[in-house]
Amino acid sequence: MTDLPNRLRPRDEADLAELVRSASGPLEPIGGATKRALGAPVAFEQGGATLLDLAAFDGIVAYEPAELTLTVGAATSLGVVQRELDAKQQMLAFEPMDPRVLLGSVGTPTVGGTVAAALSGPRRIKSGGARDHLLGLKAVNGRGEPFKAGGRVVKNVTGYDVPKLFAGSWGTLGVMTELTLKVLPAPETERTLLIDADDASIAISILSRALGSSHEVAGAAVVNGRAAIRIEGFGPSVAWRVDALARELGAPTIEVLDADISRAFWRDVRDVRPLATAPIVWRVSTTPSLAAAFVARVAQTTSLRALYDWGGGLIWLGLDAPHADAVRGALVDGHAMLFKAPAEIRARIPVFQPAPPTLADLERRVKQSFDPDNRLNPGRR
């Protein structure tokens, strides 16, 4: 990790709790520091925050392949986790995104940062997102109080589901030190159908038909004018389902990507590599049936590039300038996040879609209960 000034390095949970309790200003927790450019700049108007370097919370605490559970320190790198899971033919099924190429960041993505940002990849349409795979955690709240929630078992539904609150909280509720995740068996192989489409609405219609089929689609995207459909599992099953789906769709032009090329293709979709050179990138969640019309409305105002994932429910827009009014004004349903932009722009334009008053009030009350003095990542969202 690039050396950063104004940084505290807690040695353990007790040390972290004391540092949070005694803090006189804002704190910004970091693990691999790969996602600092996501969200609004922390405490921008106050001149920044003291960094809490969580490097001490690293390593695999417990891995029980037979129980499909994994417990790790929050600063454990995704690469370390993936290698351990690969050895047992298992995976993090929410397919965590690596944002480094898109953001131009350095460092190592960590489990804690990935969950805090809820960065889920193309398989979310089949297996759910990061929030669905988080079983338990240990953390320190804004009062400097250590606590734990959830557990190491899949059936954990008693009481208020605090882990679900922390997935996508962007580090504003507490400093996670340990996480327990559900893991799943990795597919033996995969193949991808690529189908030419005249426009995005036709491509999304093709994806909808595939997702509505019985063939267990594990990826559905529109990239460079082609509908992409991933099928994965055991070899003979994948081969049969690919052939059957191709016949059902009846498209005149179909290309099939075999396993290694398919994996590389979906890594690029997961990490939004096609838009890496765009200075501004929006992440838009909407109803798939509205996606193409939304992009067309934005395109009336400015030139853009679009990548559709999750069957059209997730849209990545690459622009030369923010055009926030055009993007949010064109959105009929859903929300738009300014995912990539210089810090000055992210400080000036609301990064996250402004919440309706009732939801905004609930978010304020949850934040108040965990971090009453607004110490943790103030202003990030």
Rank of each mutant, 00 (worst) to 15 (best):
S285K: 10
V281E: 09
T277N: 12
A299E: 08
F294P: 12
I280L: 08
Y308C: 09
I280E: 05
A292C: 03
R273D: 01
L307V: 10
P288N: 08
T287N: 05
P288A: 08
R297G: 01
G311Y: 13
P279K: 01
V295T: 13
L290P: 04
W282E: 11
A292V: 02
P279T: 00
V272Q: 09
A291L: 13
R273E: 03
Y308T: 02
R283A: 09
A299F: 03
A299N: 07
V284L: 07
L275S: 11
P274M: 06
R297S: 04
V281T: 15
L304F: 15
P279S: 01
L307R: 11
G311I: 10
A296H: 12
T301S: 14
A299R: 12
P274K: 07
D309Y: 09
D271K: 03
D271F: 12
T302V: 13
R283M: 12
A306V: 02
V272R: 06
A291V: 05
L304N: 14
L307S: 07
Q300Y: 08
L290E: 12
A296C: 04
G311P: 04
R297D: 01
L304Y: 15
V295W: 04
R305I: 00
L275D: 07
Y308R: 05
A291F: 06
R273W: 01
G311C: 10
S289K: 09
L275N: 06
F294T: 05
Y308P: 00
V272A: 13
A296M: 04
P288C: 11
W310G: 02
I280C: 02
L275W: 06
